[in-house]
């Protein structure tokens, strides 16, 4: 551990300020989460399991799980491709598109949901045609996927971009000189460098997707057993005065989210990749 210089040892007022901040963070974050976990498991794990055995809860969890994992995978693949195009190709409007990639960080998720609904809803040309072709987006799984892809758009791209920029062009040239084809060059020079950043960001995407509410609530239509995701299920249970089953599903989602969070953190710590 790095020692802190004597000359910068905190003064008394700095230590008091620190105590307030520590207390603030502990009270604001630790206390509610503790309450959630205690309440969600207060009747024991058996009751927790029973609450999770409700068919609706299970279908919601399953829907959330598979859409989130799929979104994570798509994010990694398409995110790497997008970062590649943004970093390595010149085309008009590149700066603008690069900036727009951050839009999901700035725009309210609910508004994002509205945007998607406007494009793919039954009133729009695209939406009505897709409906007619038997491939509805709104009130169906594709809508959920699109919404999740939107809110997690910057994650992988922003994690991979700096790594791509840092790769020494000499390495790529060396690989080419040795006769490596484009795919082989990518696999041997680029892939090992960007993999940790892409994977940890992909894991964060999954974590974010598991909890997404605002963007989905409009697009998905929340049809029980079909498009009702776990966060919307939790919301519904709270609304109908069933905090116990809401807490049970929450505890499960929380455990998965925290697991993914620390997994991504571990990868970042060991590889120097940085998120955000």
């Amino acid at each position: 551990m790095k020692s802190v210089a004597y000359a910068l040892t905190p003064t008394r007022s700095e230590r008091i300020a620190r105590s307030f901040v520590v207390l603030y963070i502990a009270a604001l974050v630790a206390l509610p989460l503790l309450a959630l976990v205690v309440f969600g498991t207060s009747d024991g794990l058996v009751a927790l399991a029973a609450a999770l055995r409700s068919p609706l809860a299970r279908s919601a969890l399953w829907l959330t799980l598979w859409t989130s994992v799929l979104v994570g995978i798509l994010d990694v693949l398409l995110g790497v491709a997008t970062a590649w195009v943004l970093v390595r190709y010149e085309f008009p409007g590149r700066a603008a598109i690069s900036a727009l990639v951050d839009l999901p960080l700035a725009i309210p998720t609910l508004v994002a949901g509205m945007m998607l609904a406007t494009l793919y809803g039954a009133h729009s040309w695209i939406g009505s045609n897709l409906d007619a072709a038997g491939m509805p987006v709104m009130f169906a799984a594709p809508g959920i996927l699109l919404a999740l892809l939107f809110v997690t758009l910057p994650f992988v791209i922003r994690a991979v971009e700096p790594v791509l920029l840092e790769i020494d062009p000499a390495e790529e040239e060396a690989a080419r000189m040795l006769g490596a084809g484009p795919w082989r060059t990518f696999r041997t020079v680029f892939l090992p460098a960007i993999a940790p950043a892409a994977i940890s960001a992909g894991i964060r995407s999954v974590g974010r997707a598991l909890g997404e509410f605002g963007a989905i609530v409009i697009v998905a239509g929340n049809i029980p057993f079909r498009t009702l995701t776990a966060p919307v299920y939790i919301f519904g249970e709270i609304e109908s005065g069933e905090p116990r089953s809401a807490a049970a599903v929450s505890v499960l989602l929380l455990a998965v989210a925290l697991g993914l969070h620390s997994l991504a953190g571990t990868i970042e710590k060991h590889t120097g990749a940085r998120h955000g």
Binding site: V21, I25, V29, A30, S250
Partner: peptide, 25 residues
């Protein structure tokens, strides 16, 4: 270390669960 970890957590938690957690509190 705990403060460091706690400060990062809100990003990983669903907003709906945050609401629920405070209701329970």
């Amino acid at each position: 270390a705990l403060v460091n970890a706690l400060a990062d957590l809100p990003l990983a938690i669903s907003p709906v669960m945050i609401g629920l957690a405070f209701i329970l509190l």
